[in-house]
């Protein structure tokens, strides 16, 4: 049941039109950050107001919405955002990646490959990949205009000089279609390869910073690196202790105060589906660990 006091998907039509126009321009200029008149939402900045506005502008009553935070459907903020759209848009929701038509995410790309017909909406805190090198928007805008990305390469190279490798583990910058350097939101760099050539539409919303950007399907997205230090998508060197997957991104759980740890899939839907198919891990309840 939708809340009658508010318009469908909360935002008024004029606001949705404004966001929709920004989304179309974002798709036309992949990786470029389109300024938009971000609204003050009934949840705090930092909680996903950009993603929520993008989702609200995209939703139709026929959609099935999935919301994840850290890969999980049951984290409190994912629950809260899902409820917001149940209440204001009356849309069906799902926890299954394959069943979802719109997925709003914070910090992860689902393990299950996405398909045409799906939209992945990212919540973005700081959309400007150059922000930590240059705090002024007036400067970074010029740098994008002139494709002046040398500073970024210098920073990455300094990492290599100091640490022997590029010491950026998440929000790892990418170059889109050989033009704009883009912040992929704070996803682990493990997820970066999924940005490229993805059949789904990927939309990015930064509410507080009032920016929207996008990756059309099958876009060319390259993680910045050097020939002698190529990008690698790393993860903890373990298998999931519940489903046994050796290829999924893992959460680390500390299980006692003596340093005992276990590793479980961060993507709860992926893990549950594998367990339902009979896969098990080191600590599966079945006890028949491989």
């Amino acid at each position: 049941m939708t809340d009658q006091a508010y318009n469908f998907a909360y935002l008024d039509e004029q606001t949705k039109r404004m966001i929709r126009r920004a989304l179309l321009k974002a798709l036309a200029i992949p990786g470029y950050q389109v300024p938009f008149a971000s609204r003050e939402m009934p949840m705090p900045y930092g909680w996903g107001t950009g993603g929520v506005q993008v989702t609200a502008a995209c939703l139709t009553p026929d959609d099935r919405l999935k919301v994840i935070d850290q890969g999980a459907d049951d984290t409190t903020n994912a629950v809260s955002i899902r409820r917001f759209f149940q209440r204001t848009a009356g849309v069906a929701t799902t926890e299954r990646t394959t069943d979802a038509t719109v997925i709003q995410t914070r910090h992860r790309i689902p393990e299950q490959p996405l398909a045409e017909g799906q939209i992945l909406v990212y919540q973005v805190p700081i959309p400007e990949p150059l922000r930590f090198l240059e705090p002024r928007e007036t400067e970074t805008r010029k740098m994008h205009e002139l494709e002046e990305y040398g500073l970024m390469h210098v920073k990455l190279y300094e990492d290599i000089a100091r640490h022997g490798e590029i010491a950026t583990a998440y929000a790892y910058p990418v170059r889109v279609e050989g033009r704009y350097v883009m912040d992929p939101s704070p996803i682990p760099k493990f997820d970066n390869p999924k940005l490229a050539g993805n059949p789904a539409i990927q939309l990015f919303g930064a509410g507080r910073e009032a920016r929207i950007y996008a990756l059309p399907p099958y876009s060319d997205v390259v993680s910045l690196d050097f020939e002698d230090h190529p990008f690698t998508a790393s993860k903890a060197d373990h298998a999931c202790d519940l489903c046994g997957s050796g290829s999924s991104y893992l959460d680390e759980v500390i299980t006692d105060d003596r340093g005992t740890r276990m590793f479980v899939c961060s993507d709860t839907d992926f893990c549950a589906a594998r367990q339902a198919q009979g896969h098990c891990g080191r600590l599966s309840p079945q006890g028949d660990a491989p």
């Binding site: 318009n7 039109r17 929709r20 798709l27 026929d62 939209i119 539409i201 996008a214 399907p217």
Partner: peptide, 19 residues
């Protein structure tokens, strides 16, 4: 029904511009 019809229409426009 502007909110629903424009939502459907926009999804078509979004798909079109994306593909």
């Amino acid at each position: 029904d502007p909110s629903t019809q424009s939502a459907h229409a926009f999804r078509a426009l979004l798909e079109a511009m994306a593909r």
